[in-house]
Amino acid sequence: MATPFSPDRLVSILRAEGVKVVEYGSWRTHNRNHKGPFGPINGVMIHHTVSSGTDSSVSLCYDGYAELPGPLCHGVIAKDGTVYLISSGRTNHAGGGDEHVLDAVIAEQSLPATHEHEGSGGAVDGNMHFYGFECVNLGNGADPWPDAQLDAIERAAAAICRAYGWSSASVIGHKDWSDWKSDPRGFSMTTMRERIARRLGTDPGRPVPQPTYEPFPGVDFFRSYPQSPIVTAMGRRLVAEGCSAYREGPDPQWTGADVQSYAKWQRKIGYSGGAADGWPGRKSWDALKVPRS
């Protein structure tokens, strides 16, 4: 059972992990503690804001709106990697979720599928149990996630896990918690947990060697028909492997030509039938060895 950090302690552990921190407004006393307890703390939850622009996103998360009063998280992670602290107490970020997910987080085990959401009879109050970080992103699967922002997510979550003695299994996405949520969308939480696990094996603040190849960005990334340099890099590898179905390109926009080309790659490495449908999975992606973009 973990008690919440004091404001000073929260700032300290984030900066020790190499996070660029901005203390925003009256964040030390800005909270929803009058609506219920904050703690025991069991994990860290990652969200996207469904907004653009740093100033407006931070302001929105600080103040909230009529239907959902602020603060809406503990920290807002901007695209440049800056973390704006807006609360150190209870916030309106997690809402109701699945008790079985909470049990798995506490036990630091693999997550079950969630079947609960805000307002359902079995929902658990996530605002009590999780630190929450809102990341500036439109959440449409096409808005990019810059390396600096992903690095800050990794560092912020690792800082809290390190301070409590947790593993990366204590970090979840909102979509892992509540079955009607899709955030964060555009990167893989599985890959993010792998990054956090690597960082937790190092000293705070020390750079972590990045993999030579592009980590699998997740099934949702491709299903959103993204426009991304990752798609170009993938296409070039498919061409190099003799698996091209391109008439032009490859280019950053995911299209049917990418699906057809990737299906050729899947068949080349032994997949058949429905397993060679042209949609990347982790094993076939790792085998392709797409260079980091």
Rank of each mutant, 00 (worst) to 15 (best):
F5V: 01
D8Q: 12
I13R: 02
L14A: 04
L14D: 01
G18I: 01
Y24A: 07
R32C: 12
G43Y: 02
V44P: 01
I46F: 03
S51Q: 14
S52R: 12
S57L: 14
V58R: 00
C61A: 13
Y62M: 05
G64D: 01
L68I: 02
C73Q: 03
H74V: 03
S87A: 14
R90D: 10
H100P: 05
V105K: 00
A113N: 11
A113Y: 08
E118K: 05
E118T: 07
G122M: 10
V124L: 04
D125F: 11
F130A: 05
L138T: 04
D143L: 08
P144L: 02
D151I: 05
A156V: 15
A159G: 07
R162F: 06
S168T: 14
I172H: 01
G173M: 05
D176Y: 05
D176P: 06
D176T: 03
T190I: 12
E194P: 03
T202I: 08
T202P: 12
P209A: 12
P215L: 06
F221V: 00
Y225A: 14
S228D: 13
V231C: 09
A233F: 13
R236D: 14
L238C: 02
R247Q: 12
P250D: 03
D251G: 13
D251H: 14
D251N: 10
Q260A: 09
G270N: 13
G274K: 12
W279F: 15
S284L: 04
D286V: 05
A287M: 12
R292V: 07
